[in-house]
Nucleic acid binder design. Structure first.
Length: 271
DNA sequence: AGAGGTACCTGGCAGC
DNA sequence: TGCTGCCAGGTACCTC
């Protein structure tokens, strides 16, 4: 599920319920996530207050008294606030219980997610220190892409999905942004002109921004959050539409595999 | 340094 | 119905 829009939606959704709240207990039912959940997490957290909930790339950061909880949702994770008395379901691996009676629960069937604890500046954590720019910030623009891509022969789709370049562009939105910008996904990153990178940067901001706005519509019933965020139903223009007509030119949309990932594009509109 | 492949894990689905 | 194989929104780490 989680691309950046869902992580952002999650961040906004859980923050009002847990910011300023004191943690009373952490329950780990399954510690075998991407990295083993440290047992010290349980001991360290009781009594600490969550001061802020922020996002860096697809990492959620819960700032506490003496350190920061780092959460990544992997490919199938979701995080929601409920009551501490709610009965856990099959893949509910971890709960953080608060003095308010609320419970922040991590559900992750594929267990590619991660829950980590650091007492240092989280930006310096091994997993975060090499992250590239935030796509919705002013740091991402055509010039930035142009400079970083010189002499790079990697396909543009893999280039924009490289978290050292820009964070948060996952497989769905990489295809969507390249379609909007009219760039063929396998074109070498180093062979794209500045003017086209200006369009690509704008396209990425547009698709991610629209998705966050759509995801925001589900925030109202976030406490019941169980179903999919609203943005999932938004009309994707190429993703999973192979064989269907391009909504711009009518050509049949194609699907190829790039770096073991499905990629969708229009061979007329994208060059 | 850059490029490409592999591994981690479960669930849903198509095809037989 | 039940089995098999493939696919899925991520990313760290390995080799060449």
């Amino acid at each position: 599920m989680p691309e950046l829009p869902e992580v952002e939606t999650t961040c906004r959704g859980i923050a009002p319920h847990i910011s300023g709240q004191q943690i009373v207990q952490v329950i780990v039912r399954e510690k075998r996530l991407r990295y083993p959940v440290a047992s010290r997490l349980t001991g360290h957290l009781a009594g600490q207050t969550v001061h802020a909930v922020t996002r860096r790339g697809k990492y959620l950061l819960l700032a506490c008294d003496t350190g920061t909880i780092i959460i990544h949702l992997g490919m199938s994770g979701s995080l929601f606030v409920g009551s501490a008395t709610d009965r856990p379901q099959k893949h509910d691996h971890l709960d953080i219980l608060f003095g308010s009676g609320r419970c922040l629960r991590l559900r992750d069937p594929r267990r590619f997610g991660a829950v980590l604890w650091t007492t240092r500046d989280p930006e310096r954590h091994k997993l975060l220190q090499h992250l590239g720019v935030e796509p919705l910030s002013s740091s991402l623009d055509g010039d930035y892409f142009f400079q970083r891509s010189r002499d790079r022969r990697v396909a543009i789709k893999q280039f924009i999905m490289d978290s050292r370049i820009v964070v948060g562009v996952g497989n769905i939105y990489a295809s969507e942004a390249l379609f909007i910008a009219g760039i063929h996904p396998s074109r070498a990153a180093g062979r794209i002109a500045l003017a086209r990178y200006l369009q690509l940067a704008a396209a990425i901001k547009q698709v991610l921004g629209d998705a966050i706005d759509a995801g925001g519509t589900t925030l109202r019933d976030f406490l019941n959050a169980e179903g999919r965020p609203g943005y999932f139903q938004q009309r994707l223009r190429v993703y999973q539409r192979a064989g269907m007509p391009c909504d711009r030119c009518g050509s049949v949309l194609r699907q190829v595999r790039m770096g073991q990932r499905s990629t969708y594009y229009c061979c007329q509109c994208q060059v």
